[in-house]
């Protein structure tokens, strides 16, 4: 665990010292900010406040920015030759994979934490002044939505990391994982595309969005969704470890 911590810390430092990561955070804030203001304008006078709404959009943006965070994790190291250094360090391969993943996830969490500002605004406008029939912000769905998006983010990062381990080219890794995540995202709407219902159902079960759009995002935590995301993360990390390990055998 010590080496996991060291590797995660290095990755995290890497994110915070690279201008790209700040640009990603900036873009995310612009996009979610826009989404938030549009949503706010839509709700005024017609709908109750919903803190989870902005997170639904955040989930969609994650599909595109998670690959930007993960594409370099292994591809860059393989190219720069530092992977050979890592693999001759007295650490297990799984520690390397886990450390990198945790580093990326922590950075993702930091970006996610930026959106807490919107929840603060919700709380402020629902509690600050007293007027009749003041709506209350339902905190429950907000908590579950954050948990869902956090797990969802972890899964997207784990998938992206696998692609980064498979290829030595960052751009290819980023492109592949973005495509994969986008397809998994669209899987939620498989029913209108795939003619065979059983297949559509199966595709939907595998899709990431299906495991939070009808549960976490509306204030329900289904244990199977937690198992799905955690299982997906663990499986991806396991396969990534195998792929990294395979470098030792393939030379």
């Amino acid at each position: 665990m010590r080496s996991v911590r060291i590797i995660a810390r290095r990755e995290l430092t890497q994110y915070f010292t690279s201008p790209i990561a700040y640009l990603v955070a900036f873009a995310i804030l612009m996009l979610t900010g826009w989404q938030f203001n549009v949503d706010l304008a839509r709700r005024v006078g017609t709908l109750p406040p919903d803190g989870a709404a902005v997170l639904g959009a955040f989930g969609f943006f994650t599909v595109f920015f998670a690959p930007l965070l993960t594409m370099r994790l292994f591809a860059e190291e393989a190219r720069e030759g530092t992977l050979e250094l890592m693999l001759t360090m007295p650490v297990r391969d799984s520690d390397i994979v886990l450390g990198k993943f945790i580093g990326a996830w922590l950075y993702f969490s930091a970006i996610l934490a930026l959106t807490l500002v919107y929840q603060g605004i919700w709380l402020a406008i629902t509690t600050a002044r007293a007027y009749e029939l003041r709506p209350e912000l339902d905190i429950g769905p907000v908590i579950s939505a954050y948990m869902g998006i956090w797990l969802f983010g972890g899964a997207t990062l784990a998938i992206g990391m696998l692609f980064s381990a498979i290829t030595e080219n960052q751009i290819v890794a980023g492109y592949l994982s973005m495509s994969a995540l986008f397809i998994l995202w669209l899987g939620d709407f498989s029913g209108s595309v795939i003619q065979n219902r059983a297949l559509a159902q199966a595709v939907r079960t595998l899709s990431l969005q299906a495991h939070y759009s009808t549960s976490f995002l509306i204030g329900v935590i289904r244990f199977e969704d937690v198992v799905f995301f955690v299982g997906l993360i663990v499986a991806m990390l396991f396969i990534t470890t195998r792929v990294v390990e395979s470098r030792r055998w393939r030379g």
Binding site: F26, N37, V44, P48, Y118
Partner: peptide, 27 residues
């Protein structure tokens, strides 16, 4: 929690400035 949201135009303007300019700008 199902009551309708009430926010004044002035408040919305402030929120927009904070979320669209101040925060991304800081980052």
């Amino acid at each position: 929690t199902l009551l309708k949201l009430v926010v004044s135009a002035q408040e919305r303007k402030t929120i927009a400035v904070v979320t669209m300019i101040v925060l991304p700008g800081l980052v």
